[in-house]
Simulated scan of single mutants.
Amino acid sequence: MKEIIEFWDNNGFGFSNVNAKQQLLAWLDDSHFLQSKEVILKALVIACSNNKRKLNYVVGILKNWENESLLTVEEIDDYHESKKQDQNARNSTHSFPTGRDIPRGFELDLTAGEE
């Protein structure tokens, strides 16, 4: 609990925002995470890296992980790594040409229709 409060206070989440701290600490007891403290700290780190130092953002991260049944830091890391690999694979193997092919025999006549 002390580590979470210290991280919150030292990283710009709002030193005097006691209500937000209490709501965040409720996740220690009310969540299904197997490593509650570590998971909450990971969510705080991600919020900092995205420059989103708000309780709602952190809670959103935690809810997403809970909805995905990611209950440990290892499961969260594996999930994000596999998503990153999937995205990289999609980006590298699917290159689509821009525009449409020009049909054979097509001739562009810029003066057509002018008389």
Rank of each mutant, 00 (worst) to 15 (best):
64 N>L: 13
43 A>C: 05
93 T>K: 12
114 E>L: 14
35 Q>A: 09
103 P>R: 09
87 Q>S: 08
39 V>W: 03
73 V>E: 07
98 T>W: 04
99 G>L: 06
58 V>G: 05
62 L>C: 03
83 K>G: 03
44 L>F: 01
6 E>Y: 08
89 A>M: 12
2 K>I: 10
59 V>L: 11
80 H>V: 10
105 G>H: 09
49 S>F: 02
71 L>V: 12
73 V>H: 03
43 A>I: 05
73 V>D: 01
90 R>T: 05
48 C>L: 08
85 Q>H: 06
106 F>A: 10
19 N>Y: 10
114 E>K: 12
75 E>R: 03
81 E>L: 14
50 N>I: 00
65 W>H: 08
115 E>Q: 04
12 G>Q: 07
42 K>D: 10
3 E>L: 14
106 F>C: 04
14 G>P: 12
68 E>D: 15
99 G>I: 04
74 E>D: 15
96 F>T: 11
112 A>D: 10
64 N>Q: 14
6 E>P: 01
88 N>L: 15
96 F>N: 07
53 R>W: 00
89 A>F: 12
28 L>W: 02
84 K>I: 04
28 L>Q: 13
41 L>P: 06
74 E>P: 00
108 L>K: 04
67 N>A: 15
60 G>L: 05
1 M>Q: 15
26 A>P: 00
55 L>H: 03
53 R>H: 09
41 L>F: 07
109 D>F: 06
61 I>F: 13
74 E>S: 10
46 I>S: 13
78 D>T: 11
29 D>T: 07
69 S>W: 02
73 V>F: 03
14 G>D: 07
36 S>E: 15
51 N>R: 13
40 I>S: 03
35 Q>I: 01
48 C>E: 08
70 L>W: 06
39 V>N: 09
92 S>Y: 02
112 A>T: 02
99 G>K: 05
73 V>A: 02
44 L>Y: 05
108 L>C: 06
87 Q>T: 11
106 F>L: 11
40 I>P: 03
50 N>A: 08
111 T>Q: 11
95 S>L: 12
32 H>D: 14
114 E>M: 09
92 S>G: 01
71 L>M: 14
100 R>G: 01
108 L>H: 06
107 E>Y: 08
25 L>W: 02
72 T>N: 06
89 A>Q: 13
64 N>Y: 05
50 N>S: 12
26 A>T: 10
42 K>V: 03
87 Q>N: 08
67 N>S: 13
20 A>F: 02
36 S>H: 10
42 K>I: 02
94 H>M: 07
23 Q>C: 08
89 A>C: 01
76 I>A: 09
26 A>S: 15
38 E>P: 00
33 F>D: 03
110 L>I: 11
